[in-house]
Amino acid sequence: MGLLTNLVDHLKAIGTGLKYLIPRRLTLMYPEYVEKLPEGYRGYLRYDNEKCIHCSLCARICPANAIKMYRGGDKKLRPGINYTRCIFCGFCADICPTGALEYTTIQDIAYEKLEDQVYPPEKFAKGVPQPVYPEKPIFIIAKVDEERGLKYDRV
């Protein structure tokens, strides 16, 4: 009896393996396909120099000491960020009372040098770094699917 159920279980395992031989892949082929992240994803930060009220809350809340206040030519404090330390918790953007700091959905940036990842206020205000892909990627949106787990729809 035990031997028979054992045999059935063996056959069931092999059968399941055979069943899955029809390709139904979960992998996202990055960087040919790039996920367009939903609004509200905590990625790289955008800093708006105009909106900043020099309150330093962002630097004070930063858990990783990534944000530092720099004193500019006009004697006002402005935040600069060091992305080598940033942990993308988004606390700075959430505490910013004017929306001068906001998170973007950009997350995949590669740097050649460590120093490049330090953004003093002037560089920080210039805009968010843009990712570089080897060829033009196809942007997709990930969605849960009952059959396949995750489904990637083209934007």
Binding site: Y20, L21, R25, L26, G149
Partner: peptide, 10 residues
């Protein structure tokens, strides 16, 4: 390849 397909990867 077989292992990859069964494991839902490439």
């Amino acid at each position: 390849k077989i292992a990859a397909i069964i494991q839902m990867r490439y």
